[in-house]
Design a protein around this nucleic acid. Sequence first.
DNA 1: CGGGCTATTGAGGATTATCAACTGGTGTGG
DNA 2: CCACACCAGTTGATAATCCTCAATAGCCCG
Lengths: 232, 232
Amino acid sequence: VIRTAEVFRGAQATTLADLDFLLKSRGFREGQEVPGPAEGEGLFGLVVGGAFKVQRWLSCDQYVVTEVLGPGEVFFWGDSDRADTGLKGYPTVLVSLTTSCLLAMNLAEIWPLVARDPVLAPRLLDHLGQRLGRLADRFARFLVFPAEHRLAFLLGLLVKIKGRSQAGCPGLVPFNLTRKDLAAMAGLTLETASRVLSQWEREGWVRSGRGWVEVRDTQALERLCLSEEDHP
Amino acid sequence: VIRTAEVFRGAQATTLADLDFLLKSRGFREGQEVPGPAEGEGLFGLVVGGAFKVQRWLSCDQYVVTEVLGPGEVFFWGDSDRADTGLKGYPTVLVSLTTSCLLAMNLAEIWPLVARDPVLAPRLLDHLGQRLGRLADRFARFLVFPAEHRLAFLLGLLVKIKGRSQAGCPGLVPFNLTRKDLAAMAGLTLETASRVLSQWEREGWVRSGRGWVEVRDTQALERLCLSEEDHP
DNA sequence: CGGGCTATTGAGGATTATCAACTGGTGTGG
DNA sequence: CCACACCAGTTGATAATCCTCAATAGCCCG
């Protein structure tokens, strides 16, 4: 399994052997929370199957999903995000969106491997760099553009995550997704998310139900994203 | 200069020598744009002095500032952001906020150094990880919280960047900052940014003028940020 | 069958964008 | 040195978006 991961491709045999030994596989049911690292430690992980949302609590009853990690993606979960950054008292958590599988190890133990294997470091840096770029993109869009654009862009990202449940339905988001989740990812309330989806359903662009969404007209949604960025 | 940078601390002597040879120093006047990498190449850089804004264009007349890089911060500027990600046609640019100095080199040439030096990779990964975490924090806040919170949080970040012009004025943002820039960083229009600042000026919490802002009551602004996240 | 959760829909209101007019400072060129 | 344009900022009126609150319907589970 480790060998097939994009981030580890081309790594030395000894590195792969060490990873084989260190990384522990863990399964998660839908909606289950990934236990965070212990005090003063960190967690390094790789998503093998399924998907996880990175959820940031803003208050006791409100959260925002900052990222969705699909198969092949990696995370560095610092020791409680360091005291000075982040929303104090409300930590970041990882929650599985569907039946998922994860490989995880102590964060501290990855550093010797990174230092020793000349392939690993560039791979991981590139991976993080891409993530930073994508988040900056979403940040810019979601600050400025209206609800329709945000949801359309978000669905465009979500359907690209490959999953088992998509067999035969290419436009189906491959995991459970309530209106509340969608709203938390787009920075909206579930009411507005519901309204936008209802409108799109009337247009015939999507189909949706309790906990699932299927995109039927990808181009229509792409037009909603592009219409506001292109004025040449 | 290279030796004093946090990201390079503890690196091998040969690494530092190589960096010394590869990194070229470049000065920038206020408002000047950093020339991007050539087609198919990339740029690796370290901010030595001053500050730069990472500016993302959304349309021909609107941009958002996704990050502000201060002294000691590093950037990996990919080859035109890769075709599949980002806002097509409107690239990301780096613009200096004040008289600034930068060390830069070809991105491709950093990989051998990273692969060889066991200290460098963990440092850079940690640096990027922190940046990702901070951006996720801003993302969550700015999606959900109102204008006052966003601006207060933003000013809190900006005054922490150390600069020459702050000598004697600890609350002064150490570079030129128009209302338009502030608005672009907070995802607001310059009118609302102006209104909020005027209000704060009446309260005596800030002072501001043409292109500068000084925070006089840090705690008042911190209260504006905290009031909405803590409901225990 | 009832309780809880998800989703839908409506009305009202708060926030913020948009448009517009205006002020004052800065720099430029005659 | 002054007139001028121009830019940054301010302020007001209006409008649009989206949130909040509330009521209701449907689905799943015990």
